[in-house]
């Protein structure tokens, strides 16, 4: 396993759409600085932003932990929200439980989790109703 180059932790606050995306923007800027290819940065940005938004909308916030290695990025998104009743259903493109006011903001297309899976090389989700959800993602460079 290659050595960690950068370790970052972000607290994502719930129901704060004004600051949603700031953690993803910071990670993107870090990856750009260390010279990661833009196609890889884009995959990280998409996966992380979707995860951030999910925590804002559904979980009242959470913590994003990002470890950047020489050959990959590992992201862990952990929240203590209400959990996901049916993970398989939540993974279905187009399935959404976002309320109308959230949809009016342009979210809730039901593409969040499918996008996260699509743009990452490894994706896992553990969720327990009433306890919370943890998403783990790995994006390999190149």
């Amino acid at each position: 396993m290659s050595e960690t180059r950068i370790h970052q932790e972000y607290v994502v606050s719930g129901n704060n759409f004004a600051s949603a995306g700031s953690a993803s923007e910071e990670v993107k800027s870090t990856l750009k600085k260390i010279g990661v290819a833009s196609s890889d940065i884009r995959r990280v940005a998409i996966a992380m932003y979707e995860g951030e938004i999910n925590m804002v909308i559904h979980a009242g916030g959470g913590v994003a932990t990002v470890d950047i290695y020489l050959d990959r990025v590992e992201i862990v998104l952990a929240d203590k929200g209400k959990g996901i009743e049916n993970v398989e259903l939540a993974m279905t493109p187009g399935w959404s439980t976002a309320p109308e006011d959230i949809r009016a903001l342009g979210f809730g297309a039901g593409m969040g989790l499918p996008n996260m899976k699509k743009y990452t090389d490894e994706f896992s989700i553990e969720s327990e109703v009433g306890v919370g959800t943890t998403v783990r993602m790995t994006i390999r460079f190149g």
Binding site: Y49, F107, A109, G110, N115, K118, Y119
Partner: peptide, 9 residues
């Protein structure tokens, strides 16, 4: 497009 997840991807 307007749905942000579609735009992102």
């Amino acid at each position: 497009g307007d749905f942000l997840s579609f735009v992102m991807s």
